[in-house]
Design a protein around this nucleic acid. Structure first.
Lengths: 91, 91
DNA sequence: TGACAATATTAGAATATTATAATATACTAA
DNA sequence: TTAGTATATTATAATATTCTAATATTGTCA
C-alpha cells in the first residue's frame, strides 16, 4: 500500500452519505439498496452511484440473492477506520 | 460530531500529499514548511496550500517561532485514523 | 533601513465530484 | 411472456479540487 492507495480509501469515505452507508454496513453486517434508500432518505440513483464509488475503491462488495443485492463491507482497513467513528451516526 | 464533520476529516486526508504530511507529523511530532518541501519534493506553494486545507479542517495547527512556523497534528480523531496506516509511508 | 529567508495568497486553467432526471438492466412471479 | 420489483447506468449542469506560476507577507539580521 502506497500513499495513493491509502488516500483512495479515505477519499471513498470522504462523503457524508458514503460514510453513513459504510458505517451502517460495519454495524448491520449487510444491507440492500432499497433499505438504504429508506433509511438514508436519498434517491435510489444517488445511493446506487455512491455504492459504486465504494465498490470501485474496494471497500464494499455486493452479493446477489435473487432479486436483491446485499452489500457488505469487505475491507479491513476501512473497517478499522470506521471503528473510530461514533455509533449513533450509523442508522 | 455528525456525518458531515466526520467526512470532513476523511476528506482532508483523502489526498496523497496531505496524507504524507499528516502522517509525517504524527510520527515526527512537528515540522516546518521548507523541510516538508524538501522531504516530499513538491513546490512550496503546493505544500502551503495543502497545509492550509489541513489547517482549515482542524487537523493541524501552526506555531510560529521566529522566522519558522512549526506544524503539529492537533486532532485526536485524525491521529487515531492515521495510526492505521503503515509507517514507511511517513518520511 | 534593505536584503534575505520562510511562508502565504492569488489567479486561472484543467480536471473531478456531486446531484437530478431519465432510462436501462436483471430478476421473479403469475 | 408480461408486469412488477430491485438495482444500475447515463447525461448533464453546477460546483469543487488540483496544480502551476506569479506575487505578497512576515520576520530576521546586518
Amino acid at each position: 500500500m502506497n500513499p495513493e492507495d491509502y488516500s483512495e480509501i479515505f477519499k471513498a469515505l470522504s462523503h457524508p452519505l458514503r460514510l453513513k452507508i459504510a458505517c451502517g454496513l460495519l454495524h448491520k453486517g449487510k444491507c440492500n439498496v432499497n433499505t438504504m434508500v429508506e433509511r438514508l432518505g436519498e434517491s435510489q440513483s444517488l445511493i446506487s452511484q455512491h455504492l459504486n464509488i465504494l465498490k470501485k475503491s474496494g471497500i464494499i462488495k455486493g452479493y446477489r440473492e435473487g432479486n436483491i443485492i446485499w452489500y457488505r463491507l469487505e475491507n479491513e482497513l476501512a473497517a478499522k477506520l470506521l471503528k473510530n467513528i461514533e455509533l449513533k451516526l450509523c442508522d
